[in-house]
Every structure is written in C-alpha cells, then in structure tokens.
Amino acid sequence: MEIEKIVENVAFNLLKQAVIYLPEDVKQALKKAYEEETSETGKTQLKAILDNIELAEKYQAPICQDTGTIIFYIKAGSEVKGLEKIENALINATKRATKEVPLRPNAVNPFTQKNSGDNTGRFIPFLNWEIVPGNSLELTVMPKGGGSENVCVTGMLVPGEGINGLKKFVVETVIKAGAKPCPPNILGIAMGGGTDIAIKLAKKALLRPLTEPNPDPEIAKLEKEILEAVNMTGIGPMGLGGKTTVLGVNIEYAYRHPASFPAAVAFNCWAARRASARINADGTVEYLTHKKGV
C-alpha cells in the first residue's frame, strides 16, 4: 500500500483510539485519586469521571464532547520515502474521523468566525515535525481540549530569581486557572528557550506518561515538589474543592538567553488524550499507546 494511504488509516485509528480510550497511566492516576480523595463533593466528581470513562469504552463514543483541536507529532525517519504526502494524509484522516467517529467540528476561522465543519483549516490540524535517523515513521495525535487550552500561559521570569521564580509562576498560574481547565489536570511545564520554544516544549511534555518522571533526577525532584505544592491549593476535582487538583507534572527545558527566563505552563484536562503508532519500512504498524488497536 502507498505511504499516503497507510498514514491516513493509521492516523484515523489513532484519532479514534485517542478520543474513546484514555491512556492506561491516566486511568490509573484517576482511580488512585478517587481512592484518596477526602472531599465528598470531590469524590462525586471523580466517580462521575470514572463512570464516564467506562461508558465511553462500552459505547465506543468520545469520552468528552470537546474532541479538541487536532495536533499531530511526527517523528519521521530521514530515509522514509513520500514525506511530502503525509500532511495531506493527516488532513484526510482528520476529515474522515470527524465524520465517522464522530468528532466535534472544532476549527473556526478567527476572522469570519465560520466553522469549517470538518476540523481542518489554515494550519489545522497542526503538524509538529521532527526528523530522526532511520526508516520508520512515528505518529502521535493529541486532541487538545479548549477548556484546558484557555489557561495555558507563557511568561517572562526574572533570571535573578532562578527556580524560585518558576515555582511561584506555576503556583500562581494553577490558582488563577482554578476550575476552568477541568481538574484534576496534567501540567506540562517548560523553562528556557524563547516564548515560542517554551510553550512548544510545555505542550509536548503533556505527551510523557505520568509513570515516567524526567530522566534527570534533579528535574524529577522539581516535578514532585511542584505536584505536591499545587495539590495543596484545595481547588480539587472540577474546582469544587478537594485534594486532587493535578495528577502529574512533566517538566522540560531548553537553554536560555542570559537576560531572559521564559517559562510556560500547558494544561491538559483529566481527559488527557493521546495515541501513538509506529509505521515500519515494510508497512507494518505497531500501536504504542493503545496496544489492542481499535
């Protein structure tokens, strides 16, 4: 089969998997949160979340009606032939998934306010390319919900404040976000680079499973420290009060200019959807996040 057709089929399957089945690490974190939550109202929210996850699987329907803005991450082996056809394949997969899964049409022209009706439009779905050695193609889809997107921020910290400045920035951002991003959330945090680099890294950090801390032990320690701190806010599930505000914190960084300390916080809602697959040179496909396929 031609690469364009394979990519379209795989991307369609990934979109379907992502919006119906939460990744195992997210499900486990929500179950643990339910067991440990002490607020009665908070517990009702986590119970509704867990019931909803089961119903979505049972009825093969999207977990959340906001099936997000469609973002792809592509790790393309430099030896893969036909890379120029992939963008079109991903656009076609998105249109097909919108009709067949179905997904909610979420692509609106910001000038005319018209919804395209098929989740595609200028720069949408958005493609993040990475060229790596080899002959395989790794595809990841992140259907990114709007509620959690609305509270994502980038900021310029004072370099002299160092990591303390970052901690303060994150705590204030979580407090300000409150109930809006559908807590319990996952936080992707990035420091360094420039504003664009920081928010890109922060968003990409949302793809890292909750069971995988940053490989650098010092950064992993910071992830844990920030997680414990933001869960002391008491915002709780859906902002109705409780001890589970954030399920996990993933931090990434880039080197920064001496005079600049850019930082970014990306939020994901509890419906932290993602799905990945690898397409090998011989056309075989391995589903990486959803092993059972669809």
Binding site: A56, A61, C64, Q65
Partner: peptide, 13 residues
C-alpha cells in the same frame, strides 16, 4: 448545577 466536565457520555445517556 455543576456537571462534571468531560463526562460527556454520562450526559448523553
């Protein structure tokens, strides 16, 4: 009335 955000199938049913 606060309905659990994201609990879309619970609502649809």
């Amino acid at each position: 009335g606060a309905f659990t955000g994201g609990a879309a199938i619970l609502a649809a049913k």
